[in-house]
Amino acid sequence: MSTEDKHSKDPFHPHVMPLWVYFGVYFALLVLTAVTVGVTKLPTHAIFGEMTHTVDVIIAMAVATVKATLVLLIFMHLLFDNKLYSLLFSGCMFFVVLFITFSMLDTHSRGFVDEIREYTISAEGKRTGMKDWRKNAEAYEAEHGGEKKAHAEAEMIVEGTEESSVTGKDAEKILADEVKSEEGEKPSDKTQETKPAK
């Protein structure tokens, strides 16, 4: 690592791996590529049903990560090199993950608090003062218990509207209509409301 332990080491001694390692990794990479293509392009709908796309995404990303790890560890010698490189590389990936996660978190949870409020309009009706979001949150918790919010959201807004009796329609469609009618005229045709895009 640092120069202080240098003098105990051999002057310069590269690490040479046997050939079969390279070919092994190569074929593993090819097989994994085939797996990704297979999973995403074969008609797997019968197995996974509605989850097909999600499953595809998860498998494709997992396989890509495995492939990347193979290249990093073997082709790029991370496995045999100074651990410093692995450490710094993890730091770099931490930054990448951070960047993407936080940006995604934002687009996914915009207007989230508003949705809690939307729900309690129909449930309670009246506000009692400045602190009323906490009551709303309590009411929401009481109603939905431990249910996961992401799923409840779509339903609760639908319930709050007159269209809740309409059945057979896609929940997203109703949601979109509801938002439209609520927002009144839009500033432009291309209006994109991020919230209901879930």
């Binding site: 608090v113 409020r117 309690t120 309009i121 506000r127 602190k131 979001w133 709303n136 009144g184």
Partner: peptide, 16 residues
């Protein structure tokens, strides 16, 4: 949160 969550009976005024 108090500033963010409007009371349910608030009158809406649209701003452009």
């Amino acid at each position: 949160m108090d500033f963010y969550v409007a009371p349910s009976d608030a009158e809406e005024i649209r701003v452009t």
